[in-house]
Structure formats: structure tokens, C-alpha cells
Computed example of a mutant assay.
Amino acid sequence: MVKNIASLMTLMLTISTLLYFSIQSDKHIDLSKYSTEGLDLDYTVKREANQYYDFTKSLNIDKDYEYSPYLGKSFVGFKEALAFKESGGNYFSVNTFGYLGKYQFGASTLRLIGIHNTQKFLKDPKLQEKAFVANLARNKWILRRDIKNFVGKRINGVIVTESGILAAAHLAGPGAVKKYLRSYGLDNFADGFGTTVYYYMKRFSGYDTTFVKADKKARAI
């Protein structure tokens, strides 16, 4: 037993001594003298492993696509969905009929909400957002009785909602929406591309547009 303890202590002393001298010797190593210059290096790790992982490849999706949070039926969801349908969300878009911006406004509609310089409007995203809200507020005031009388009713198989009415008014103007509702869908206006009031009533149904307050004199400027 005593012999085993003595052997163990001798081993521990030997290890301690070796560690001490190893540490002391490292303090005097001049690493500047060491270099890999001129050596034939052979890496065992593939180069691709150091590149960042591109998740779009595994999901088989387009890297140029702009991703955004799911906006649901919120007001922001409403305006972004409408903008995507109108212009693909492009503030600087001008279509073949001369409609301008993210929400594709006509010059005559812009004048109604106080905007007379269309070129300035096209270059100003903030002004375009203000114009969109102002136009909604104005249309909501014009259509206030129709909203009260028709929301919840079914026309051409589609339940009428406030957001559907406002979207259709953006497309065709409030007068065309009045005709559509009061004819119970028989007078169905279509724009130059063939898009109808009915389609917008259906496509933009059920969004929350309570944010918009009816305002007869709404202006963007």
C-alpha cells in the first residue's frame, strides 16, 4: 500500500515538473520565425464549407423576390395587396394609359386631392402614400350611404364589405361603384385592362379599413 502511494506521488511530481518546463519554454518561442511560405499546403476541408448557406436553394425560390411579414387582413395588408395588383408595388410605375405610381392614380383624381404636379408625385413615395389614404377617405365619404346599406349583403355571390367597396372605388371611381351596388351587380364597370368592379369587390373583401375616416375635403397636400 505504502509502495503504491509512493509510486503515485512520484508520477504526479514528474508530470508537474514536465508541465512547468513546458510552460516556461513556451514563453521564449518567437513565432515570427515560423512561416508557411514555400510549403505545399493540403487542406482537408472543402472550400464551399466556408461560404454562407444560401437557404433559397434548398427552398427552390427566387433570391430576387422581396419577402415581407404576413400582413393578413390589416389595413397595411389591404393597401399593399391593392398596390401589388395595381403596379407590383412600384412607386415609379407608369402604365400604358398614363396612370401613375404604386397605386396607379390618374391625373384627374390627383387634382381632386390637391396634387397638380404629376412628375413630383411620381418621384415622392411619401406623397403617394398620403394620396392613397386621402383618396380612400374621400371615397368613403361619397359612398357612406352605400356602405351603410349594402355591407353584409350578397351581390353576384360575393358578400359586400367596406374594403371591397373602397378597393372598387379606387379602380373605377365611386360613381361606378354606386351603379354596381344599386343595380345589384348588373352595371359592372370594367377598366381598360378588363378588370371589373365585381373582381375588386371579391379580391379585396374583408380587410380592416376602419382606420380610414370619411372626409369630404380630404387632401394629400
Rank of each mutant, 00 (worst) to 15 (best):
R47F: 12
F97P: 01
A134Y: 08
K217T: 11
G157K: 05
K63P: 10
R145T: 09
K27C: 06
T195Q: 13
R145F: 10
N149F: 10
L143Q: 09
I23R: 07
R47L: 13
M201E: 09
D42G: 04
Q119L: 13
E80L: 08
K120H: 14
Y67L: 15
V197S: 06
Q51P: 00
L143C: 02
L11M: 12
T109D: 06
N95P: 09
K178F: 02
D42H: 11
K33F: 12
T109E: 05
Y199L: 08
V94Q: 10
A168Y: 01
I165M: 01
Q104H: 15
F150P: 00
K120M: 13
T14F: 15
I221W: 13
H170D: 05
L100E: 05
A172Y: 02
G157S: 11
V94P: 04
T56I: 12
E129R: 04
L143Y: 07
F193P: 00
D26K: 04
N90H: 13
L122M: 10
H28F: 07
G164Y: 03
K3T: 11
A169L: 02
V94K: 08
A131I: 10
F193C: 12
S32F: 11
Q24G: 08
K102G: 13
V160G: 03
S32A: 10
T96M: 13
N50L: 15
R138D: 11
D54Q: 12
I61Q: 06
S16V: 15
K73G: 09
R144V: 11
F204D: 06
S22I: 07
V133N: 04
N95S: 07
A218F: 10
D64G: 05
L31T: 08
L112F: 02
F92L: 15
L41G: 01
E66M: 09
K27F: 04
I113P: 00
Y200K: 05
G77N: 08
I113N: 00
K63H: 09
V151G: 00
Q51C: 07
S183A: 06
G152C: 08
D191N: 14
V160S: 03
K79V: 10
S25N: 09
F21W: 07
Y20K: 10
G98K: 07
P69Q: 14
S35M: 04
A137P: 03
A218H: 06
L41S: 06
G164Q: 01
Y198E: 11
G77C: 09
I165N: 00
I61P: 01
